[in-house]
């Protein structure tokens, strides 16, 4: 196991380098430039735009820029934002806590809804409960988050006036009041995101459980006189978890990467909104840093998922 781990981690280094080359090339070739806002302003002479491009090294060949980025990154210098003119790591660190809190909670919420509902629905396929759960799940993923988010705002903020819909990272209150305010402002984005995610998770869990529930060993377990509860949890769920682990591992990097649409709607200052602002402003150093961290997490969680497969089903081996 240990050698396997070390081998996988060693492979990860060249593969991440390869990914970074491709990311950098795409960003360098993608259309747009960071100084577009100046373009419509008659007061800014074209020479200034050119001087700025030169001072940020945008006129160098891609290869030179990539090597410069790589060597800086190796020394812990994440780069310098064109738009904010501060270091990229400061920008990301400012956004990280909020992102982890909001997106992380929504993932937990999604799993807390999806696992019990999916399993219960699968043990009673085509029952009334199953039908209702399915229909709600279909509604859940047919409606995009920009739509459900707006619906929530209209109902809970505008009509009922229960929750604020502008998320603030600096609540002035302290103590219990702080937690209360935090809860009030976070509940809508977390719910919107969590339920959207839960809808598809529920379908996967249900399908995975249905796949194993009729297998012979489950019947055997029941025949041995084990309680239904024990059969469901120990025998069915464990074997049905492989697709769920895969999906959760796919979603974990998003906990860092944020949720673009929801963050925009509720003005959550997360990494998703940092990324989209950076993309719209063509602030390449920020885009590169965020996507690169994201790809590291993708690789890492892929590895974790592989290890978990082996634990869930000991016959899977990676020697």
């Amino acid at each position: 196991m240990a050698t396997y781990l070390i081998r996988r981690l060693l492979i990860a280094i060249p593969s991440l380098l390869g990914i970074s080359v491709i990311l950098f090339t795409i960003l360098a070739l993608a259309p747009g430039d960071p100084f577009s806002e100046m373009a419509t302003n008659p007061n800014v002479p074209p020479e200034v735009r050119e001087a700025l491009r030169a001072s940020f090294g945008l006129n160098d060949p891609i290869m030179v820029r990539y090597l410069r980025w790589l060597s800086n990154m190796a020394q812990g210098d994440w780069g310098f934002s064109f738009a904010s003119r501060i270091n990229v790591d400061d920008l990301i660190l400012q956004r990280l806590p909020t992102t982890l809190f909001v997106v992380g909670s929504s993932q937990i919420l999604a799993l807390c809804v999806a696992l019990p509902v999916g399993i219960y629905a699968a043990t009673r396929p085509y029952s009334v409960f199953d039908q209702i759960a399915n229909t709600l799940a279909f509604v859940g993923f047919s409606l995009p988050t920009f739509f459900t988010g707006l619906l929530f705002i209209l109902i809970f903020s505008v009509t009922l006036d229960w929750f604020p819909f502008v998320y603030r990272s600096d609540i002035a209150a302290t103590g219990w009041r702080w937690y209360w305010e935090m809860f009030r402002q976070a509940i809508m984005p977390i719910t919107v995101l969590g339920l959207f995610q839960a809808a598809s998770y529920t379908r996967y869990v249900r399908s995975a459980v249905l796949d194993v529930i009729r297998l012979d060993y489950v019947t055997t377990a029941r025949a041995k006189g084990l309680s239904e509860r024990r059969v469901t949890i120990r025998h069915i769920t464990r074997n049905a978890l492989i697709p769920v682990v895969t999906l959760v591992a796919l979603q974990m990097p998003a906990v860092f990467g944020g949720a673009l649409v929801t963050e925009q709607i509720f003005r959550v200052p997360g990494i998703g909104s940092l990324l989209i602002d950076a993309i719209l402003a063509n602030d390449t150093p920020v885009i590169m840093a965020v996507t690169f961290v994201f790809s590291c997490l993708v690789v890492l969680f892929n590895l974790i998922a592989d290890i978990l497969y082996g634990w869930l089903d000991p016959r899977i081996s990676f020697s």
Binding site: P31, S36, T40, N41
Partner: peptide
């Protein structure tokens, strides 16, 4: 973000005018 950029390589910027008709707002500061 593309239309109003000064990206020399992009054909879709408003200053390239690679089109018959074009509409935008220009600001008078």
């Amino acid at each position: 973000s593309v239309f109003f950029s000064s990206d020399v390589a992009n054909p879709d910027t408003y200053t390239k005018l690679y089109t018959d008709m074009e509409m935008y707002t220009t600001t008078q500061p």
